[in-house]
Each structure stands twice: as structure tokens, then as C-alpha cells.
Nucleic acid binder design. Structure first.
Lengths: 152, 152
DNA sequence: AAAATTTATATTGTGCACAATTAAATTTGA
DNA sequence: TCAAATTTAATTGTGCACAATATAAATTTT
């Protein structure tokens, strides 16, 4: 029984730690770029979704980003305070809160356009390698969706 | 100027989001397994490091996991409360706090041995695919280390 | 050796994540 | 039709992450 050398519990062998460490480094790499826009990384993701399609509900944003209202509600209130989005109940269904870009929120897209360019420079990856890794991660994420969870 | 269809700002094109989403799903997949051990995911990582090599300082744990004292100090206090580790200043250098496994912390390793097995079943990946993705993520993380940062 | 600097940890404050609960609006179905 | 079930957000509470600062111990400089 050589417990100490059981490789399955070694940190450097873990896929989960490589993923966790890479994800935090990625967020850290975005930080200076997003600071310049006055956004945090999760706020940037919300803005990406809204730039793609405006006037989504909290639920729709949550489905897209896989985040619940416990995370989104305070985040969206901060974006509202920053003047980037508006929040109002839909008259068609008062349970739903519709999030819309303000003019400032819409304008920010142009300044944000440089963010992916800066990151591409930073990564020094071929377009193929980039896509391949991204798609491997998407596959991994769907593999990890809990069976009884209808998220996908 | 077709702003709306600029692909560089589409959420589904982003490597960063694929990474962020996969990392959160991975943590979520560990949660039920770690709940059974009374650990959170970051606490599990700390235990992995200590099972590999006991009696590390907070700084050494932080270097291994890339976490600072603001994260580790309260986490380690919770592990201490749970009876899994001890914390004491080193007599050789009173600035350093040495973290050691208690008997309970050491014993937990045997129960933790099933965690990687369960996750391997869940992932349904070949050993080669697993290693390849893990090593790609390690390469990505080093690529993202800030130039002036001596972390690697 | 005293002063300045460096190092190690802790503390404070902000912002996620996520589980659990609550409250209100809507839908369903007996 | 109206009570029960469902849906949508918000709230509460815990535990990370991480920046900034504080504090104390050790080391280096003068």
C-alpha cells in the first residue's frame, strides 16, 4: 500500500486543477483590459450577451451564461448603477425583469472591440488551435452537465 | 459597419467563456462527491497538496495553488475548525505558519481516493485525451502568466 | 546596532457563485 | 372558478478570489 505515491491524488495530474488554474489566469488576463472599460469579467460576459441580443430577461441571461438570479440580480444592479443597462418589469408578465442596454451600454461595444484583439495577441495561438481547445472545453462542459439537469 | 455580427464579440466564439463555463461545471460535478467528505472544492485542492507533502507553510500552499493569504487564511481556519489540519507558527521563523494534517486529515485521504475514480467514470475520456487536454490547459495557463510576474 | 527594507501572514472590502428560501405573478386543473 | 402548482426574481447566507492595507518578524543596509 504505497499511499503517498498514488498518482490519482497528485495535484499536477488533475484535469480539474489545470482547468481551475487556467480559468483564473484567463480572468486575471482580462482584468486590466476590462478595468479600462469599468467592467468585471462576469459583467463583460453579460454585456457580450446583450450586445448580441438586447432586451433579455434575467432568466434568459441566466440560461445563456449558466448563472442564477443570486449571482445576476446584484451584478445587474451594479451595471444599472454604472449606467450601462436598464431593468424593468415586463408589462406582459410582471414576474420577468427585462434588461436593456442604455445608450452608454451600447456605445461601450465599440471600445470593447479591442478586448478580443488584445487577448488574441496575448495567447499566441493559431486560429485552429484556439477553436479546437474551445470546442474541447465545450464538449467537456456538456459531458459534465448532470443527467437530470435540462441545461443541455 | 456591421457591428451586430462582429464575430469577435460573440459569446459562443470566446475561449474565455468556454473555459469559465467548463471550470464551473467541473466544480459542480465534484460538489456531491466532496460534500460526502465535508470539503469544498478549494479545500479539496489544499488537502491534495498536503497529502502529497505535509507541513507546508501558507506561502508554499499559495505557490502551489496560486492563491494568496486572503483566500487561504480563512479557508485554512475552516479546515482547522473541521479538525483536518493544524496551524502553528514555526519556531525557526515566526512569520511563517505551518499547516499540518491531523490524524483525521490524514485518514480522509483513503476516503478521497474514490473521488478521482468517480470523476473518471463521469468524464468518459480516454487517458490520452484526458492528458492532452490537461496539458493544453497547463500550456495556456503559462502563456497567460503576466510577463513581470515571477509565478513561472 | 539602529534604521530601512523585505517577507509572511492576516485583515478589510468588493464582487462573484451557488444553495436555500421567499414572494409575487401566472398557469393549471379539478 | 378558484385553489394548487409552477415560474420568475429577489433575498439570505456561506465560501471563495483578489486587491489593498496592516502588522509583525526577519534580513539587509548603513
Amino acid at each position: 500500500m504505497r499511499k503517498r505515491t498514488d498518482p490519482s491524488l497528485l495535484l499536477d495530474e488533475q484535469l480539474c486543477f489545470a482547468l481551475y488554474a487556467a480559468s483564473r489566469r484567463m480572468t486575471a488576463a482580462y482584468r486590466p483590459l476590462l478595468d479600462a472599460l469599468g467592467l468585471t469579467y462576469p459583467q463583460y460576459l453579460v454585456m457580450l450577451v446583450l450586445w448580441e441580443r438586447d432586451a433579455l430577461t434575467v432568466r434568459e441571461l441566466g440560461e445563456r451564461l449558466q448563472l442564477d438570479s443570486g449571482t445576476l440580480t446584484p451584478l445587474l444592479k451594479r451595471l444599472e448603477q454604472a449606467g450601462l443597462v436598464g431593468r424593468r418589469r415586463r408589462q406582459s408578465d410582471e414576474r420577468e425583469v427585462e434588461i436593456t442596454l442604455t445608450q452608454a451600454g451600447d456605445n461601450l461595444r465599440e471600445r470593447a472591440a479591442e478586448v478580443p484583439r488584445c487577448m488574441a495577441d496575448r495567447l499566441c495561438m493559431s486560429v485552429d488551435a484556439f477553436r479546437h481547445l474551445r470546442d474541447e472545453l465545450k464538449t467537456l462542459a456538456s459531458q459534465l452537465a448532470s443527467p437530470q439537469d435540462p441545461r443541455e
